[in-house]
Amino acid sequence: MNIFRLAGDMTHLMSVLVLLLKIHTIKSCAGISLKTQELYALVFAARYLDIFTHYYSLYNTVMKLIFLGSSFSILWYMKRHKVVRRSYDKDQDTFRHHFLVLPCLVLALLINEKFTFKEVMWTFSIYLEAVAILPQLVLLQRTRNVDNLTGQYVFLLGAYRGLYIINWIYRYFAEPTYSTHWITWISGLLQTLLYADFFYYYINSVKNNVRLQLPA
């Protein structure tokens, strides 16, 4: 494993921890899109179908368990916790996320590297992850004033995607057996581009030491 991949995984892990920290300690999920969280839970469930059937490394298994466990506990907090769920911006979080799921599934059935159940589900998770942040970005745009933890959460997610792209470039040149993965690369690039606008405003707000505010 190279340093970019590790750094990517760590920023991904930190993004989840920041979110759980916000929810658990402040008992608030204000500014967090339940739609995006539902999509991520689905992404992990579809992608990690091999968790008990194929062993890669202890690191791999533990991280998968953390991502699965954390995404479903975030869902539990936002839907069931009697205090946290009251802070959910239900009226603002109106993105119709179900309409993202079906096209991704159809695309995975049509464009995949191998037509098997596990491979199609894996490809579906790649497509869905690429667009899963959209409800969250729309919610941020609507709320405009973004609190620090929510801003950090989205920033860390974007950083994770960016680092994964560098990881792929590195692997492409460093590993002789590494083949081209157009599906993952294009999806990953699209996903990272979705953050570009947010990144611009986030970095400006950090530089000027002001609260993150997105344009209407």
Binding site: H12, N167, H181, T184
Partner: peptide, 10 residues
């Protein structure tokens, strides 16, 4: 299997 190289990623 060439296309398994990505499966060790998260």
């Amino acid at each position: 299997d060439a296309d398994d190289s990505l499966k060790d990623e998260l």
